[in-house]
Design a protein around this nucleic acid. Structure first.
Lengths: 216, 216
DNA sequence: AAGCTTCTTGACTGGATGGTCAAACTTGAT
DNA sequence: ATCAAGTTTGACCATCCAGTCAAGAAGCTT
């Protein structure tokens, strides 16, 4: 009778992160990088393990040595993304200057579109599909945070420190405008010319827009 | 030797639309409706003919009696969509009142998000994937139209009739803000509460926003 | 009702795809 | 150098999926 040896993926099944060798850390990162590239453009079902394997420069069985399944890779990517997805909004400080705070939030979100466009598209893909895998996150974590910050903005408008606006739509508008530059980068690139940086001028435009919107 | 009979799909291969029977028109429409539902949420690769068949209440071979292939269904949907996708922007009239015209454009786009959210998501899916099937449309038709209307807006700002703004980013912002309500409807619904209409208050907010942005 | 055309579908095929496994190879500690 | 653990992969399997086909059912026309 053969005793199957445990794979790293199995060992990592427990809640706490187990110790990983240098090779394991390196290859898991390579795989996640490749998977992010593939999942973010083709979606979960549209992506194949073979594509990811080629992108990662590893064999398909090797992928499954480091992760239990295609789904596990995807889950790991989403988990890591959601961990930081809330940060920009979380940093919005009720004690700061309203205009400065909102402007800084917009700038942080735009920076995320610049630095992590693939993560943004991964998230967009999930929402387009009805958010089946992130429903809990949105209904609980995201919703609570948005409700909280909406109250902050509401207090600012009530105090006359910024112009009256619906705080929810204000937040949605920042999401829409900043994420558009990551999610629709292909379209923007084709319209503005391919040499052009899609985000060129975006920050100035958004700064101008929100300055005018918020001025009391 | 058996002589294969022509199917409707084959007959419709030519450029001009062939005459179709009552049943053909009805079933093709049913299939396109079902396919729009499935493609818009799962993307091209994520959708299966079986899903579409179930949604349409037809058998899978029956689908392929009316359309040559999965790809042909998808192409037909995109073709019909692109035909009307440009209309709202095309209607922007260089001879009209600047603020009125831009506001009306924004309202038309928002109306499309309300009336055709699935079409919007179908398009979003295409762009997320790098726009492989609509690249020609974007590089030629859409780009020419945007360039044209950007010049119109530029003339308006040059004449001081509206505040100075980058015309391209102005157009992109209208796309981002209006399409967000269709493409991210799932997220908005989960945050605002499921009884809520995601578009509630959107028009008032956008009207307010663009009024402030454009005032000279 | 007969006879032709259009429409419908159960059963099937070939290729893609997620996942398995045992054997081989590599690494590192002694 | 040796050995055990960790790593890699060719070959394989089961399932899914787009697409085919031949035979039968439903509509039309006379």
């Amino acid at each position: 009778m053969s005793v199957p040896r445990a794979t790293p993926a199995e060992k990592s099944g427990s809640v706490k992160t187990p110790p990983r060798s240098r090779i394991q850390r390196r290859n898991r990162q390579i795989i996640l990088d490749a998977a992010l590239e593939v999942f973010s453009t083709h979606g979960f079902r549209g992506a194949t393990l073979d594509q990811i394997a080629v992108q990662a420069g590893l064999s398909k069985p090797n992928l499954l040595y480091y992760f239990d399944s295609k789904d596990a890779i995807h889950r790991e990517l989403l988990t890591r993304l959601l961990d930081t997805w809330l940060d920009p909004l979380r940093m919005l400080d009720a004690g700061g200057d309203p205009q400065t705070e909102i402007m800084a939030y917009m700038r942080r979100k735009l920076q995320m579109s610049r630095d992590f466009p693939r993560e943004s598209r991964l998230f967009a893909n999930e929402i387009l599909q009805g958010a089946p895998r992130v429903e809990g996150f949105i209904r609980n974590d995201l919703r609570a945070l948005v409700d909280d910050k909406a109250r902050v903005v509401q207090a600012w408008t009530d105090a006359g420190r910024i112009a009256k606006t619906d705080p929810y739509h204000l937040i949605f508008s920042i999401w829409a405008l900043t994420q558009h530059y990551a999610d629709f980068a292909a379209q923007i690139g084709m319209i503005r010319g391919d040499g052009h940086d899609p985000l060129d001028g975006a920050e100035a435009f958004l700064k101008h827009l929100y300055t005018r919107l918020l001025a009391p």
